[in-house]
Amino acid sequence: MINIIVCVKQTTDPEAPPCSFKIDSSANRVIFPAGIPPVISTFDEYAMEAALRIKDKVGGKITALSLGVNLLRDVVKKTLSMGADELVLLEDPAFADGDSWSTAYALSMAIKKIGDYDLILCGRQAVDWDSGQVGSGIAEILGLPSVTVARKVEIVEGKARVERVIPDGYELIEMSLPGVVTLGNEHAAPRYPNVRSIMAAKRKEPIVWKPADIGVDPAMIGSRGRRVKLTRLFQSARYTKCEMVSADTPEEAARKLVAKLRANKVI
């Protein structure tokens, strides 16, 4: 039996077409695309899957933990429908617009309040700001060991065995518990919730904590607690003029394409 906390973030949908991505450069903000609902950050779903696989094997309890504002219940409850036992939300305007430091600090204080944990799992990075630091930050704040960008986590004789991704394979690391592991998409794919668990998740309400509930100083969280300031957000105009090769048949187009590449000394 082990207790696992999985940190998940609600983000814009990374699968949305790139043309739907817009920013308001005067305010350095992303304009949330209309009609495309947010999702749980891709790698955090892999972290959920890693937790579920451990629970399936050795038993235990999974608590999903999320931080933000306007957390859509249909989105964050996916953790419950996937199989988490509890969902804790740090939801308050004071938590908003943090950097890796202020976010990891608030999450660490919430983890302390949850108290009973053996393993903390996070996605390797959130698909919005791509910072890749919160998992390591939590480990450092709580004084725990960590392994990042894992493709597999198993519990063997009370310790975690973690396969850490390297460019040409993986390294097997043994980590004592409690500890932190961050997951990449090299891990087995997240499961789809079934109808029964989706219905059960609808009936279950998350626990919502405010800054005072986890004993944090509002000056140390969210935008006020930032150590890194965003000075500019922009889209680089990297569009090329594509020379389209067309012909009556795909085979003919292929021939023309090769001839053109040859003529332009590309091949």
């Binding site: 814009t12 990374p14 790139p18 991505f21 920013i23 992303v30 698909v127 919005d128 700001w129 791509d130 150590r227 890194v228 300031k229 965003l230 000075t231 500019r232 957000l233 922009f234 889209q235 680089s236």
Partner: peptide
Amino acid sequence: KPVFGGNAMAIQMCE
């Protein structure tokens, strides 16, 4: 650094 999966770039300063 690239953010939002490379959809945008952010310029940041650490204080």
